[in-house]
């Protein structure tokens, strides 16, 4: 059984069709790159998987079940925005996560917070945006989830931090679990991908193994993407 299965998914905003008949299968133990331009539908797709938007039609099944409290207990989601209660301190949000998620590893979170130079007693509203984003990454990666979904984890971040984020992602996700990284910054992450999914104008244009695609086209994923979706 696939970890996540999306069948004939459609979503429109008024007259505008954001997702057109999307079909996808996400298997266990792989890192997927959901690659597309801004506005291609990546975030919408991810939000529907995470029950933040309603679908017009189609099915989204996690281990065979409809999205609900079961899927949420096994999916760890990092959105593009800061979603924390900013009046809380870092240690309070760590406690919050450990209270609600049975798969949350408190010790790992504290260690990552230390490694990233975050002050555990600081109020979140007093932290810089970059630090808030790092904190969110820590919280998401400290869960022993079956599926991690990271929406633009490298956006707006300097190259050194980007490398650190990639390392943190690689070294902290549970063995056997899967990862979906959605991004438009392909060259930064392509070396860690098992599978790539190209999405454009709400449609899935291509799904393939990353190295297979490189062998076939004799170029980088980034280059293949640019060629496929020239403006």
């Amino acid at each position: 059984m696939s970890l996540l299965e999306i069948k004939n998914l459609n979503k429109s905003y008024d007259d505008f069709k954001v997702l057109k008949d999307v079909n996808l299968k996400i298997e266990k133990g792989k890192i997927y790159g959901l690659l597309g331009k801004n506005g291609a539908g990546k975030s919408t797709l991810i939000k529907i998987i995470n029950d933040l938007l309603t679908k017009d039609s189609g099915e989204v099944l996690f281990l065979g079940k409809e999205i609900g409290s079961f899927s949420k207990a096994h999916i760890s989601y990092l959105p593009e925005r800061t979603y924390l209660d900013k009046s809380m301190k870092v240690k309070e949000i760590v406690k919050y996560f450990s209270e609600f998620y049975s798969d949350f590893d408190c010790e790992k979170a504290k260690k990552l917070i230390k490694d990233l130079d975050l002050n555990i007693d600081k109020q979140i509203s007093k932290m810089s945006k970059g630090m808030q984003e790092k904190l969110q990454l820590v919280l998401v990666m400290s869960r022993e989830a079956d599926l991690y979904i990271l929406d633009e984890p490298l956006g707006g971040v300097d190259p050194a931090t980007r490398d650190y984020i990639l390392d943190t992602i690689l070294s902290n996700f549970k063995e056997g679990s899967s990862l979906i990284i959605s991004t438009h910054l392909i060259s930064d992450i392509e070396r860690i991908l098992d599978e790539v999914i190209f999405i454009d104008k709400g449609e899935i244009k291509l799904t393939s193994g990353a190295d297979q695609l490189r062998e076939k086209e004799n170029s980088s994923i980034d280059e293949i993407f640019r060629r496929s979706f020239k403006c």
Binding site: K30, I31, D167, L170, E175, R191, I192, D194
Partner: peptide, 17 residues
Amino acid sequence: VRDLALSAKVNPNTLQK
């Protein structure tokens, strides 16, 4: 595999291959 993948900073699946 896990240690090697970590030190090379690559996807363990790619290392397996």
